[in-house]
Amino acid sequence: MKEPIVVAEDLTFYYSGSKEPALQDVNLAFHRGEIALLVGATGAGKSTLYMCLNGLIPHLVPGRVGGRVLIDGSPTSEQSISELAQKVGFVFQSPDVQLFSHTVREELAFGPENLGLTVPEILRRVQHAATTIGISDLLEREPAYLSGGQQQSVAIGAIWAMLPEILIMDEPTSNLDPQSSQRVLELIRSLNREHGKTVLIAEHKIDATAQFADSILVLNEGRVAMQGEPRQVFSQTEKLHEMGLVAPAAAELAFELSKYGYTFECWPLTAEEGIQAIGELL
């Protein structure tokens, strides 16, 4: 039985001074240990949703809130931002927005220091994060001079050191080359599989991420448009197009061929599945 760890109930949010809701009547559940992919066009409400999950809404961002968010069973309105920071970690889109220290070691220590932990505990957390993320050899390096992929790993490590149960990643691979993207996604999956962390990833690069996700949440104009398993969501290609979104290339190809009467028992998502499914037609 999958246990929900993040629940939104009738969640609505208006930014201060705005007549249009950024989120409207959002009901959703993410389950412990799953990787969920958040998909939505710019302005669909993804960033607002993250802020509702880590407590910046309702605690810090001015606006009007309706409904509620439960993290691990308790409402965010009844937990402080620092309490929530230990449960929900947020990794920024560009690591250079997040990273600021002179060494990777300081960067990893920053979060635990701000939680007011003891020095031995801080050091233990730094070691743990460095080992888990695979950046032990970079501890004395200056983040600004690392490669994009390494910087993204350090950014994840800095959040990992706070030991959150839930990791939110805003386009973690958007600045990375294809192979570094693949490595970061594999790192995220291993953190999920080996440590049971719940991961929410927002990405526009659907082809690389679809296969890593257990579930897909599609936001459109502040509402939940679809939520389900990847194959179920990405087989509704036409509906995605209406929202300005696309499915992975293999699914798009199956959709195009289906217009000519070709049918697919199992809707392909990855290139490999696409090759198999279409190869059978040849």
Binding site: P178, Q179, S180, A249, A250, G274
Partner: peptide
Amino acid sequence: TGLDLPPVVKIARGLREFGF
């Protein structure tokens, strides 16, 4: 060089096995 084929090209390449 750290790169990869685009998905469409990757699929077309894989289909060579099927005579494409």
